[in-house]
Computed example of a mutant assay.
Amino acid sequence: MTSDDRNGSSASSFPDADWRRSSASGQLGNCVEVAMLGSGEVAVRNSRHPAGPALVFTPAEWAAFVVGMQRDEFALPTGRPVVQLG
């Protein structure tokens, strides 16, 4: 089964997933959680809806996202409100 086949599947369909969230998110509950799957893929879910849908990314897709975050490629345009965590 490919990551495309699993996108949108219930996060509970990954029973062995060890879901983690950023320590910067505090206890607000408005977070995303990630889990490394045994296949090497990465699953992402909404922490407020832990049994809700999960997105599944290949290792290459996840690596590209992480690099984009490190390079600040996803910064909000000027004048948009920024959500402060913690």
Rank of each mutant, 00 (worst) to 15 (best):
S25M: 15
N46Q: 11
L85R: 08
S3E: 15
S47F: 00
M36D: 13
A24G: 12
L37K: 11
G40E: 14
G52Q: 02
N46S: 09
E33S: 15
S25V: 12
H49C: 13
S9Y: 01
L28N: 12
P59D: 10
S22Y: 10
D72I: 01
G8K: 11
A51P: 10
R6D: 00
F74V: 05
T58G: 07
Q27Y: 04
G52V: 05
W62H: 07
A54V: 07
L76P: 07
S13I: 00
A24C: 02
A17Q: 09
V83N: 05
P50N: 15
Q27I: 06
G29I: 03
G8C: 09
G86E: 07
A63I: 04
G8N: 06
G29H: 05
G68R: 07
M69R: 14
L85Y: 11
T2K: 10
V83E: 11
A63Y: 02
S23Q: 02
T58I: 01
R20E: 11
V44Q: 03
A60C: 00
L55D: 01
G79R: 12
S47M: 01
A24Y: 15
L55R: 08
H49V: 04
L85W: 10
L55K: 07
E33V: 05
P15W: 15
F14P: 02
G26D: 03
S13T: 03
M36V: 10
G29K: 04
W19T: 02
R21D: 05
H49A: 02
R6L: 08
V56L: 05
S39Y: 15
M1Q: 15
A64K: 13
A35Y: 07
G79E: 14
G68D: 01
A60S: 05
G26W: 00
S22T: 14
N7C: 04
L85E: 01
R80G: 04
G86Y: 11
V34D: 02
P50W: 12
A75L: 09
L28H: 09
G40S: 08
M1P: 13
F14R: 06
L55Y: 12
A43K: 11
Q84F: 02
P77T: 07
H49W: 14
W19A: 02
A11Q: 08
V34P: 03
G68S: 11
R20A: 08
W19Y: 02
R71M: 09
R80P: 08
L37T: 08
Q70S: 11
A43M: 09
P53C: 05
V82Y: 01
S12V: 08
V44R: 00
W62C: 10
F57D: 11
A63W: 05
R45Y: 06
M69K: 03
S47W: 01
F74W: 01
V82E: 08
G86N: 05
P81G: 00
M1T: 10
G52L: 06
S25T: 14
S9P: 03
F57R: 08
D4Q: 04
R21K: 10
A54C: 06
